[in-house]
Design a protein around this nucleic acid. Structure first.
Lengths: 331, 331
DNA sequence: GTGAAAGCGCTAACAA
DNA sequence: TTGTTAGCGCTTTCAC
């Protein structure tokens, strides 16, 4: 509407001093006298003066925006991650711009361009399922925009990464299953293309190969809730495994549907263990035992990395966040 | 790093033509000859030219960013809302900036300022629990930034709103309970300060008052999971109600914990019905019957409102989205 | 301690 | 069809 933004020029005219003096006064420049500063600040306050960010940014060639690029925000893990980053960002005076790739490469790339055009200071990214070429990210880095990968990280070196201890998480699960004496295990993982799946699968399998050669472990890679349910029901037709390992929440949900449909009691008839951010496992009764992978903690860690990079004192390439077993009653 | 942004000036120097010609060619201005356009575009492509948004924005005095301000993004309802808005926004060439108030008034206000400083084109907002004064939003509107309220909306007029049919949702739930012949009902609502609670409570109560005077309905207002669980367990000590109504997912989760702890079978011993966005109710067995309130659909609707406002042809103040009963097996 | 002036990269009115 | 020019609002160097 008729609303007009106040500018330095306007203030300077009212006060009868120059624009540059006003600018300096507002920034507490040492050259400016206390009296002038006071006058300027008072007027600025009463007029609700707000600097025009575009002009500042054009002049200084940098924004205060950090980008986050995730497959989807409809996911507790990313939610928590984003929350954590945002919390820290606000503390340090940065803003956050969030974009979703929806696991599509084309969207990921166009989002990167949007972020670049918005002159983000730095980028947090968890790559899409389809991503293989790291060139766009390398380009960002080369143009001075630090990139911090998290969760689903680039498999090549030369990038900063914060990861969950994925091998460790899967190992902890494997160890727990073995310790409980479960010999016949159904292990369900996610999309086999993702490095997170590869890591978890490899270390889970490896742990069993070394510590429980006599166990029977069956592996499947269903991607979502429905696929997991179907895999389970299919397996149950032949035999009921002692324990089911679920790599993620979606898989767990599918498994639990199957377990109920097959009228199996947990943990009497069948044991369940998962890897999760924490909400879903607590919804069941008994609560599901799971290895915790905290998006929140990861977010805090990622921000630390980013901040260090922005300030130019980051030497560390990869940080790994440990996992913990949270006992429910399902194992 | 040494990376330098290409500018119109650079392109113009290389091509030996003026800056404005380059600018116009890139925008397919009708004045420019096809041949020049081609030359310019080709060079722009090979040099990876990207317009400097700050300059564009400073010049045009507007960004292409839409703001979203929600209490928290750690919530399926808002998640879906944001996803929907983002989907539409990307289609129309807008970006999204998301901020959380964490239900604190102070944060809400400082976020509004951040958004304003970033010259957002428009704002979607679901207000915090503490918000009572609508002045900041009114100011935004007055400075030409359309505000679309959703979910938790301003109770005063003069603002655009998209709401769920909250009365309707609660009515549908009440009706279903009555039709199933449940006479002893425990009804749990959220924070009594919120308009969404008030609406749902009033219409639920009203429906019972009119259509089932002989029913006994007990009301409580627990805010989160744990409080709901405790309220339930407390009630169960005295008597087991025929049915429990849960205004939201958090409440439902608490109730289900209590139900399990009390070893009650659903729906034989006790019926459950909720209002939900859809994920949580499907996790239980049997699935919980719920009245669906879709954040996704609401987001689409909100964007439509925003788009109309931006284009200057929005006459409608309030839009209400209908609710549907999704039958599980819990009632 | 303060002011004048240049210029960040872009758009658009006006000139040619 | 293309070029010239004047700014958008700010920061900062240099001059006084």
């Amino acid at each position: 509407m008729g609303f007009q933004q106040n500018t330095l020029k306007k203030l300077s005219e009212i006060l009868g001093i120059s624009i540059s003096t006003v600018s300096r006064a507002l920034k507490d420049h040492p050259d400016i006298s206390a009296k002038t500063k006071e006058r300027v600040k008072e007027l600025a306050a009463t007029l609700d003066y707000e600097p025009n960010n575009f002009a500042v940014q054009l002049r200084t060639q940098q924004s205060n925006v950090l980008g986050i690029l995730v497959p989807t925000i409809r996911n507790y893990f990313y939610d928590f991650f984003i929350s954590a980053v945002e919390e820290e960002a606000v503390k340090h005076g940065y803003s956050i711009m969030i974009m979703q790739s929806l696991d599509k490469l084309s969207l990921e790339i166009s989002n990167i361009n949007v972020l670049r055009r918005n002159k983000i200071l730095g980028l947090f990214v968890s790559i899409s399922i389809e991503t293989e070429d790291m060139t766009p990210f390398r380009k960002l880095q080369e143009s001075g925009i630090p990139v911090v990968f998290f969760d689903r990280v680039a498999e090549v070196s030369g990038f900063r990464k914060v990861c969950l201890a994925d091998e460790k998480a899967a190992q902890i699960a494997a160890k727990s299953i073995i310790e409980k004496g479960k010999k016949n295990v159904l292990a369900l993982f996610g999309h086999p293309h993702l490095s997170i799946t590869k890591l978890r699968y490899a270390s889970f399998k490896n742990y069993f190969d070394i510590h429980a050669r006599d166990s029977k472990v069956t592996y499947f890679f269903p991607e979502q809730v429905e696929a997991s349910r179907e895999v389970c029901l299919d397996v149950f037709k032949t035999e009921i495994p002692d324990a089911v390992f679920c790599m993620g929440d979606m898989i767990l949900m599918g498994v639990m549907h199957a377990v109920h449909e097959a009228k199996l009691k947990v943990p009497e008839d069948i044991s369940i263990i998962g890897i999760s951010n924490g909400l879903i496992p607590t919804l069941y009764d008994p609560k599901i035992t799971y290895v915790e992978t905290s998006g929140f903690k990861l977010g805090k860690l990622a921000f630390k990395q980013m901040y260090a990079s922005l300030k130019g004192f980051n030497e560390i390439e990869e940080v790994i966040l440990d996992s913990v077993l949270v006992e429910g009653g399902s194992l």
